[in-house]
Structure formats: structure tokens, C-alpha cells
Design a protein around this nucleic acid. Structure first.
Lengths: 152, 152
DNA sequence: AGTGACCCCTCCAACCATGGGAAGGTCAAG
DNA sequence: CTTGACCTTCCCATGGTTGGAGGGGTCACT
């Protein structure tokens, strides 16, 4: 199977398959004489695994661990569960962050008459010198969420 | 005021101030003879505005619009409200996405005994050939959320 | 006047995951 | 043999932010 068919069958783009190979998430494949990558059904299976893990929001690094655990017949389900639950924790923190942003904006938008007149509480809030937001946590730019603030 | 003090006072790092200048979000500042950027209290006010908008998850492009509207005394609050509510829509879609991921994982983790034995429903789910997830929408990799799937 | 501790400058690279495209090789069908 | 669909590698862009290198400025203290 060529890379295009493998991409089709797995739902991972050819671009990403090459990228995953380049970073070592998947091993280098066999090549034809002409240099074309060749994939087996088993490879497609792995790619599908990877795609599902991506769909669940795991990072490539986490997926790398999950793939290892998957391949490892002696794997401890404890390890898998730990990775999954750690990820859930991160997800839930991000959810809260986004909810606070949305709440703050909804609150401000509600008090904004939204017509052609100037004078808008949203702008005024942003421009104020006072406490950043009414919903406190949205201002914690560098929460303990990792290296960077949540990009939205 | 030098850039460091402006950064301190506004909560925007010196690096980011230079970046915002370079992309035109803020105008070029006056410089000292030695080439140091000089900031006024008003500049700091603008930077604080920008930081708050970032905290609310607005993109730089949106912030650029908001800053223009802020400066424009004839601004229509309608325009501000529209930007804010559009952003809320995006936020809420992302929240739902993340919630679905978290739900799926929580569900799988619940059925994972999580001890030293092998055999783990989380891995098995990822590896299965069947329907991607029990919570359907988490698999819609390219939902109508914009250019790319939500990176987590 | 020298020295050390900071500050500032610009430019370049990295992160993450992904898409786009150019320039060239390969393959199968017509 | 031509055409078109595929493959290859390589480079570039995204967005927002941080980091570093390498060079210079400023200031207070000795």
C-alpha cells in the first residue's frame, strides 16, 4: 500500500504520516525500489490508533507513550490510566479557563446595548485601570497549566 | 519609561511589546538617542488593554480591531459586541470539544482497572477497528471550528 | 577612570501540528 | 509516448510566545 492509500485508510494525512516518521513516532517503512513508502494493514492499524489518540487531544509525546504501552504485552493498565487521567486533568483545567472567558464576555455583552451609539462596557472593562475581570480566574495568565497560557 | 518598566507596569513582557510593535498592533515608539524605546503612561494603558483582551482569549487580529474601536470615539458598540459574541461562540465550541474528549476518557478510565495487570480498555478502544469513540463528536476531527482541529 | 551589574538592542531559532507548494521522479492507462 | 495521478524531498507559513547569542548603553560604586 502506498502512502496515499494508507492515509485514506487511516484518516491521517500523507503529510502527517511522513512527519510522524521523521520524528520517530512511527518507524521508518520499507521502500520500493523507486523510494515509495510501503504500508501494511498493521501499519494502518497503528496510524488509526494514533489518529484516535489525537482526536482525544493527546500530544504526540503522550501518543508515543501510549503506542509503546500498546505494543508492550506486559504493559500495566495503571500506566495507561495515569496518562489518560493526567490528560483529563489538563482538559478540565482548560475547559474551566475557557468557560471563565466566555462567562466574562457574556456578562459584558449583556450589559452592552449593542446599537450604533458609542459607549460600550466591554471596551470600558478592557480599558479600565481596575481589577482585570469580574470573573477572577480569567486573569491568571500563567496558571499552572503548563509552559504557556492557554491559546484560544 | 523603558520597555522593562512598561512591561512590568502592563503585564506584557518586553519581548511581546517588541513583537506587538513589529506586527503593527501598537505603533512604533519614540526612542532615546541610544535607541531605547520610551513609553508613556498612555502606552502602558494600551498595553494593559491588550493584555486583558489576550486574557479573554482574543486573537491578535481581534485585539487590533478592538483597539481601533477603543480609539474611535465614534465607535458603534454594536461592532464591539459582535466581536465579543463571535468570540464567545468559538470559545463555547471549543469547550464542547474538550468536554467530549474528557468525557470519553473518563468513561474509558472508569472501566480500566488500573492495576499492574495488562489488558486496558483505553488502549483497546484506541486500537479497535470499530466506531472511533462512544461519544461520537470527539471524532469529528475537522469540525466547523476553523482551519484546524482544536489543539489541546 | 574602571568595574560590575543591569538594562537595552537586533536577529535568529524553537515550540506544536499541520498545510501548502515547488521541483523532480515513477507508474499505469490510454 | 503522452498524460495524469501519484510519489519523493525540501522549504515555508501559521500563532503567540519564549529563549538565546552577540553587541552596546547606563548607572552607581569604587
Amino acid at each position: 500500500m502506498n502512502i496515499g492509500q494508507a492515509a485514506e485508510a487511516s484518516g491521517v494525512s500523507a503529510k502527517m504520516i511522513r512527519y510522524y516518521e521523521s520524528i520517530g513516532l512511527i518507524p521508518k517503512t520499507v521502500r520500493t525500489e523507486a523510494g515509495y513508502r510501503v504500508y501494511s494493514d498493521s501499519d494502518v492499524h497503528t496510524l488509526r490508533f494514533i489518529r484516535r489518540a489525537r482526536d482525544l487531544g493527546f500530544s504526540v509525546e503522550q501518543i508515543s507513550d501510549l503506542v509503546s504501552l500498546w505494543r508492550d504485552r506486559e504493559r500495566a493498565s495503571k500506566d495507561v490510566k495515569r496518562i489518560a487521567l493526567e490528560h483529563v486533568t489538563v482538559l478540565e483545567r482548560k475547559i474551566v479557563e475557557l468557560q471563565q472567558m466566555a462567562e466574562t464576555l457574556n456578562h459584558l455583552a449583556k450589559t452592552c446595548h449593542g446599537d450604533a451609539r458609542p459607549g460600550c462596557p466591554i471596551i470600558e472593562e478592557l480599558a479600565s485601570n481596575e481589577a482585570p475581570q469580574c470573573h477572577s480566574a480569567a486573569g491568571t495568565r500563567f496558571g499552572s497549566l503548563g509552559k504557556a497560557p492557554t491559546r484560544v
